[in-house]
Write a protein that binds this DNA or RNA. Structure first.
Lengths: 109, 109
DNA sequence: TTTATTTATTGCAATAATACGATTAATTGG
DNA sequence: CCAATTAATCGTATTATTGCAATAAATAAA
């Protein structure tokens, strides 16, 4: 995109937006859903599972890693990926609090 | 971005990703936070409130509108914006269910 | 060492997003 | 009608994202 003027917004607003951005692609949702289901998997399994080329998946994995949502540990030639449980709970709280804010319904709109 | 291959993913994955994308900018988070606080406001108030030019804010408002998160009703020359309460609850459920999925912590990763 | 396996990186093309000045459209008030 | 107000749209520059082929890097196995 063009450049986002992050410095003009609060840290909280940027945190929410940044996590949302990490979740803003169906492939990354699919990766997370898969990891939540199987707990741990290697990259190759994702290549078999998702309809995208290996470099593309590697790129999505990197974005999820940079957002702290997943982590990988080297196991020989392979890499075991899993969800960062602590970060996952943190994100659940962050979005939970935000989305739990009630909307007062008025007739105005 | 480049073109996202949405047709290769499930409707649920695309739904989550699409809402996340609508939330993936601090200005849009700020707009939502403001509307949650004041319940209703006109576009001009947002221009005073946010450090962005009027056309930019108008563009962000359109994206939030297209995601169904906000709605606007014409009031003379002005437009009253507010959160779509029903949609907001729907999104809270969508993300709540997703983020509530527990991560089984293992020593592997 | 050579080969196979697995993942990351590079480089590129195509497309989407961000931001804003200028302009337009729509309505209100005089 | 004319000016003022408010918001949307257009056009454009800049930057980010997506996707993949080709390649590199790293380790394991033979």
């Amino acid at each position: 995109m063009g450049i986002t003027k992050r410095e003009l917004f609060t840290e909280h607003q940027n945190n929410l937006a940044q996590v949302a951005k990490a979740l803003a692609h169906p492939a990354r949702i699919a990766i997370i859903e898969h990891l939540l289901r199987v707990n741990t998997c290697i990259g190759g399994e994702l290549v078999d599972h998702l309809p995208l080329a290996q470099p593309t998946i590697s790129q999505h994995l990197r974005e999820l890693k940079e957002a702290g949502i997943i982590q990988g540990t080297i196991d020989g030639v392979k890499i075991n990926y899993c969800i960062n449980a602590q970060r996952w709970r943190e994100i659940a709280r962050l979005f939970g609090d935000f989305l739990a804010t009630p909307v007062i319904e008025q007739g105005c709109c």
